[in-house]
Write a protein that binds this DNA or RNA. Structure first.
Lengths: 153, 153
DNA sequence: GACAAGTAGGACTATTTTAGTACTATTTCG
DNA sequence: CGAAATAGTACTAAAATAGTCCTACTTGTC
């Protein structure tokens, strides 16, 4: 139902890996090995994360990447923003003049309200939370139906 | 951040339109006119909605579509399920053997827990809610709270 | 100062998903 | 019977994703 791109998922792994190497710099190569993701992909993700301010980089020999802040201070919402982009939930009707229909706009607004709610909730979930071992197990049925909550537009 | 396809957005308009014509049957053509969406698209959406059990249809001349239940009893989660399909949030690592890395799996699981939480929260939002005019108060706190509570355990 | 290790950034390609369309069959009313 | 409407399926075009590659710039080390 909600959708998250693979890159965002991978990006979370990468961030978790950086969090695991407390303070020390980790090279893209090292992260690639540890996460089992391809080097070009990891490299691309790290660049995005630096650009978004979630990670910092040190160039040159012995360079590498590290979290810009403690894992407790990086929220799930920030991770999604950094990797999925700031897309809005729905283009709605505002652009194409369909909005003359009252009901249309009311509905579009509703999805946006939902999106705001979800974002706020995710703002309170930290990277550290994401790393917590699986709590009370989730019902497998649900997993199947899971995630397409991509409300990014 | 979260992405929802255009069709899902359109589908919501279509459902809202059906809700507006209380009980009476509405033809695909009529819905198309009222929503300003193209007939083929509306037709496709209505078929999906009937298939998902959210709408009922009457064939033949003077036929048409109607909601299968009152708008109050149709949840946002059901709408997303019907139109976005049962895609999983992340393929995770379970298939490709990457899961040997403990942290990877913990992370994957975390996103799934989040997704389940969001789904549960959306299960409490009805089509009738979606039609409410945008109140001054944006997101009902109960949505946010519901999401946060279930993520944190 | 030269070299090696590493990040920065952008361009490019293939694949998958999504959106939209078209056509044919079936049902039902008059 | 014929017109109006849905049902189902197949197809095409466009867009977003994922992934790769190449080149330039930085910095530590010998």
């Amino acid at each position: 139902m909600l959708r998250m791109s693979k890159l965002t998922d991978y990006g979370t792994l990468v961030l978790a890996q950086l969090a695991a190497s407390e303070g020390r710099l980790a090279s893209a190569h090292q992260v690639s090995v540890d996460t089992h993701l391809s080097l070009p992909t990891v490299s691309k993700l790290l660049k995005s994360l630096v650009h978004a301010g979630l990670a910092v980089s040190q160039r040159g020999a012995r360079g590498g990447y590290a979290l810009s802040r403690p894992a407790e201070e990086i929220s799930a919402a920030e991770i999604l923003d950094a990797l999925e982009g700031p897309l809005a939930i729905t283009e709605c009707c505002s652009a194409s003049g369909l909005c003359e229909l009252e009901s249309s706009c009311r509905v579009g607004n509703a999805w946006q309200r939902i999106n705001v709610s979800i974002r706020e909730a995710l703002g309170e979930v930290s990277l550290a939370d994401l790393q917590q071992p699986a709590g009370p197990e989730m019902p497998p049925d649900r997993w199947k139906n899971a995630i397409r909550l991509s409300i990014q537009h």
